[in-house]
């Protein structure tokens, strides 16, 4: 077990998979000679060469499509999009081709395509570098969408995604690349489906994903220390397909649910989880589920406004206390 940073987990997964299979290759803006904006591909260019670690022009839609085409005949591309806002430009190839080719070919063509992209707000990057697009990706049939909250899963999800025969979008986070955590020394794979209980508890289930897992864990600690509330923190991790049974299982135990997302509330992870609770375990609920979410505004530049736009651990604590009346 070694302590590594989130970016190092991603790098290790790339390296292991590229060493194992000569048809695994990486593409993206500045990922090669420059080593990657987030260092997640650093050193790979020197090791594997320009044919397999490709610095692309700034043409997101078409290099995504090139990855999709290569995947259709058996290669295993890992495409990095520098910022999630730029993925809008690649939506045609991702949504019309990658997500649909297996289905519309009657299962005859597989598309083992991986897109890695940092999402979320970071540090005053403005509205065009702070999008949270999970709501868009998770609405597309045929895609898998996963979001690592830890260095371990940043490694393990990429490993699984490269080996998966379906197109997978991995949403990382601009603010988490330097996050430290334990990664086992031996090879392992984080499943592309299923929730993970990060902290067991009995009073309330806090559902989170990506960076909001950390807000939820901080909140749970404070709730335990200051208010005697035993919160369960559930990392949703796979946003598509979402683990309906895993979500319901936690609420059958705690009977209360709070969903924490960095995204704006209208249409998204929170509304989907609440709908699942309605459909799967409505009569197990002792209180109406609550969403903690970003304001419905383009992310402002000003640091005070930016901070006010996105939720934090304090808002989670307040939501749980209000729900429990404590």
């Amino acid at each position: 077990m070694a302590e590594m940073m989130y970016w190092q987990g991603i790098l290790r997964a790339h390296d292991e998979e590229m060493a194992r299979d000569p048809l695994v290759f990486a593409m993206g803006e500045d990922i090669g000679v420059a080593g990657g904006t987030y260092k997640a591909t650093s050193g790979l260019f020197a090791k594997y060469g320009e044919q397999r670690v490709i610095d692309t022009p700034i043409s997101e839609n078409s290099y995504t499509g090139i990855g999709v085409g290569a995947a259709m005949i058996g290669a295993r591309p890992i495409v990095e999009i520098m910022s999630v806002n730029f993925a809008w430009l690649a939506m045609d190839q991702l949504m019309n081709n990658a997500a649909k080719i297996h289905y519309m070919s009657g299962g005859r063509i597989r598309c083992p395509f991986v897109m890695r992209v940092p999402g979320g707000t970071a540090h005053q990057l403005g509205a065009q570098h702070s999008a949270r697009m999970e709501k868009v990706f998770m609405g597309i049939s045929g895609l898998r969408v996963v979001t690592p909250a830890t260095p371990r899963d940043a490694y393990g999800l990429l490993k699984s995604a490269v080996r998966c025969d379906d197109p997978v979008v991995i949403i990382e986070h601009e603010s988490m690349y330097n996050l430290k955590g334990e990664i086992p020394d031996e090879e392992f794979f984080t499943p592309l489906e299923g929730v993970e209980v990060m902290r067991p508890g009995k009073d309330v289930s806090i559902f989170a994903y990506n960076i909001s897992v950390h807000w939820a864990l901080d909140a749970a600690q404070k709730l335990a220390q200051d208010y005697g509330i035993d919160a369960e923190v559930v990392d949703l991790r796979a946003l598509k397909p979402m683990d309906r049974a895993g979500i319901a299982a936690s609420v059958r135990k705690t009977h209360r649910a709070v969903v924490v997302e960095e995204d704006e509330a209208p249409v998204g992870v929170g509304s989907e989880v609440v709908a699942i609770l309605n459909e799967e375990c409505f009569f197990d609920l002792d209180a109406a589920p609550v969403r903690v979410h970003a304001l419905d505004v383009p992310i402002p530049y000003n640091r005070h406004l930016e901070k006010a736009a996105i939720p934090n651990a304090g808002e989670v604590v307040a939501a749980v206390r209000k729900m429990l009346g404590r």
């Binding site: 499509g65 090139i66 990855g67 999709v68 085409g69 995947a71 005949i73 019309n96």
Partner: peptide, 26 residues
């Protein structure tokens, strides 16, 4: 190796280049 018909005008350009990329790797 007939890899498809596509409805989005211009959508197959990068796919074709992608087949060529995989051929190049092989």
């Amino acid at each position: 190796h007939f890899m498809g018909g596509y409805a989005l005008v211009g959508g197959p350009f990068p796919l074709a280049a992608g087949f060529a990329k995989a051929i190049q790797l092989r």
